[in-house]
Structures are given as structure tokens and as C-alpha cells.
Write a protein that binds this DNA or RNA. Structure first.
Lengths: 229, 229
DNA sequence: GTCTATAAACAGATAGAC
DNA sequence: GTCTATCTGTTTATAGAC
């Protein structure tokens, strides 16, 4: 009998990527300590020894996951922000519209995309127990994105992008969006939703967007035009 | 040599409580699977065997944690809501003020109190991987609280408490508050805060409260009085 | 690079002394 | 009720065949 053990895989990178994807899945669902390397290897359809070979060990796999998240999410946020002009050139109305698009994109990805679940859970755990992996996520993804949003906020409201009030306002927006992912189970139960499809996603987006509108309206009273500074 | 092994503890309940507290701490920080019964027993200064005796096993300890959280948090939320009258008797202004107080209380507990960290982390993990423990937390704590808030929302805005819009609006408020706990590490880094004391807590409260004001203002335009129905 | 075998440490559960 | 000893299975990491 002939054995055909290898299905002609362009071995190296493919195995590596499969391991990262599988690890992300399991780390997200059961936590780092709760996931065994055997499980990960089995899910990736790879060998147990390959983890040691490619990443040096379980810990190396964790940092590889962080890097994977950073590059993937950077691409997603860049998809919206990258095409946009420099925030300081935006009119208030344009900035408002851009923030709206940002909310839609983030909600669409976080709530709509299944794989985002693992990302968010992974980051959440790192956030709760800061490790070296968190530094990469914060420095290369979170901070740049938040800083960018603050500048758009400034264009929309006139508030200084570096003020505490602006930074916190952006955080409250992010909080609303992120909560719909992490609290998803509670939301679905309370709303009697068996799943979150496009219809439900639209309702979520409408809710957060309405809040954005209200926040901006409160800062730019419509009837009397604010004093020009 | 005389041995003094027992320091006159009123054994039973005290050991039990110490185990739950220790478990909550470790489950919150390292996850259920990531925490060993030996660690828990050591932190509680109890014996390893006591876990099996009091809770039947590790899984029993998890549900005991859920029950502890429910009773503790119910007490906290009841401290605010319990004293308040029936929501349907509230004027819009009173409802507005009550929501404000609720925000202050929740932020004060979630962000201000150190022990809330374990609670939130525990619930978060259950939320990510629904187990029997989540049912208790949802049914006896989360749902009643959310329902109550929706009725206050109705009193403040006139919107039906059972409408999707009202429920989601409350979720966006909760999301802002909860995020300041779970994203605390990121918030501190971005704000350059070494810690969150009363001063920083005030800033957080002001930010969320301003959003509440804006949300309500958007629903009750000030100049033209809304059509009386 | 992939895979197997194995080592050394650790897990949760249990039985039984006190 | 508390504590110890021990059983059984699983963990990560490693050494080495292919």
C-alpha cells in the first residue's frame, strides 16, 4: 500500500498560518491557558511539534496571534481611513459623515464578521492581563486609530483633538460599538434575536449613529450660530 | 512542641467564602481553565480538598461564583433603584436625574471599586462562552436591571420601554460604562493616567452623562413643544 | 519541515486519617 | 470539616527518526 501523507502543501507558510488561525480561535474561546497545543494542532490539521518548530513554543504562538490581529485589523480600519483625506481638511459635515462611516464599518466587522469574535476576545483577555502581546496591539493598532478619530472629532466639533473631553468622547463611541460584540450574548437574549444578520445589524448601527448625531448636535446648537473663533 | 493548626475559625462558611473570593480573583485574571484548584486553595489559605467538599468540584465553584456575583451586584443596583419609585410615576426630569444617578453609581462601582474587576471579567468570560453560570447572571441580574432601565427610559423620553429602539439605547449607555472597565488599560494609556482616582472618575462620568443629556435632548426638541399624544 | 515518542511537571478527583 | 496521599489523565517541551 502506498502512503500519501503530504497533500502537496506549500508547507511552511501555510502550516504557520493555519496554526495562528486555529490558535486565535481557541485562545478566543477558551483563553490562552485553557487551550492546549494539542487542540490547536488538531484544529489546524498540523502536527504538535510544528508549534515548537515555527514559534518556539506556546508563548511564541501567542505573540504571533497578536501580530496577525494587528495586521488584519489595520487593513480593515485603513480601508476606511486610508482613503479619507487629512482630517484637518474636512468640513464639520464631512467629518460627521466620516465618523458615521467609521461606525458602520466597525460594527459591520465586529458584529457582522464571524472571525472578529476571536480577535476581540483575544484582545479583551490581553487587556485584562496585560502582556507583551498587548503592547503590539495598543501601539500599532489602537493608539493610531484613536488618535485619528480624535482628529476627525475635532474637525466635526471644533474641540481640540488632544483634549481629555475629545478623547473620552471617542472612547464612549468605541465603547458602544465594542459592547455590541462582547455583550452580544446578552443583547441577543434581551432582544429575542436568534442571530444577528443584516437586519439586526442595521438596528444596531441606527442606534449608535443616532447617538453620534445627538452628541454632535449638542455641541453645535442649530438655531443660533456658535461664535466664530 | 505544640502544634496550633487551627486559628479558631468559625470554619464552614468562612472557608467557603474565602474560596469563592479567591476563585473569583483567579478566574477573572486567568480564566476558569487557566486557574488550578491548587492555586485557588492556596490563595484562600484553604485546603485543596475543601473545594471538593464544599462545591463538589471545580465546576461547582464556578456556579458558586456566579451566585456570589448576582447577589452582590443586585445589592449594588438595588441601592439605587430599590429606593426609587415606580418608573411609570416619574416625570421626564425625574427619570433623567435617575438615569444620571444610575450612570454615576455604575461607573463608581465598576471603575472605582477594585473588586468589580473580578466580577466583570468573570461575567465577560461567561458571556463569551455561555455556560450554566451565565444563565443565573443574566436571568437574575442583567435582565431585570435592563428592563427596569428601559422603563425609566420610557418615563424620560416617552418611547415605549419594550421597543427595540429603547432597549438598544439602554445598551449603548451600558456599553459606554462597561467599556471604561474592560478597556481600562487602553484608556489609561491613551489618557496618560497612571491610575483612575476620583478626579479621573469624574471626567468619565461627565463624558457619559453628557452623552445621556445629548441623547435625551435629541428626543425632546426644546423650542417647539412635541405634539401631545 | 514533518512527525513520533517520551520526559517531567501538573491537572482534578478521590479515599481515608484525623 | 480539615488535611494528606495518591490515582489517573493531560500538559508543554524536547530529542531524534524520517
Amino acid at each position: 500500500m502506498t502512503t500519501e501523507p503530504q497533500i502537496e502543501r506549500n508547507s511552511a507558510e501555510q502550516t504557520r498560518l493555519a496554526l495562528v488561525r486555529a490558535a486565535l480561535d481557541l485562545f478566543g474561546r477558551k483563553g490562552f491557558e485553557g487551550s492546549s497545543t494539542r487542540e490547536i494542532a488538531a484544529l489546524a490539521e498540523a502536527n504538535i511539534g510544528s508549534i515548537a518548530y515555527h514559534f518556539g513554543g506556546k508563548e511564541g504562538l501567542r505573540t504571533a496571534c497578536a501580530e496577525y490581529i494587528v495586521s488584519t485589523l489595520s487593513a480593515v480600519s485603513g480601508q476606511v481611513l486610508g482613503s479619507a483625506p487629512d482630517p484637518s481638511d474636512l468640513s464639520p459635515a464631512e467629518a460627521h459623515a466620516l465618523l458615521k462611516r467609521m461606525i458602520e464599518t466597525m460594527l459591520g466587522f465586529l458584529v457582522g464578521q464571524a472571525r472578529s469574535r476571536d480577535f476581540v476576545q483575544f484582545i479583551l483577555r490581553e487587556l485584562a492581563n496585560p502582556s507583551a502581546a498587548l503592547d503590539a496591539v495598543y501601539d500599532r493598532l489602537f493608539e493610531p486609530l484613536h488618535r485619528r478619530l480624535c482628529r476627525i472629532w475635532q474637525a466635526a466639533t471644533g474641540e481640540d483633538a488632544d483634549s481629555d473631553a475629545s478623547k473620552l468622547a471617542i472612547f464612549t463611541l468605541i465603547g458602544q460599538i465594542v459592547y455590541f460584540r462582547i455583550g452580544r450574548e446578552a443583547v441577543q437574549r434581551r432582544m429575542d434575536w436568534t442571530n444577528i444578520t443584516d437586519v439586526e445589524l442595521k438596528a444596531l448601527t441606527a442606534s449608535v449613529t443616532a447617538n453620534l448625531d445627538a452628541m454632535l448636535a449638542a455641541r453645535t446648537p442649530p438655531p443660533t450660530k456658535p461664535k466664530e473663533s
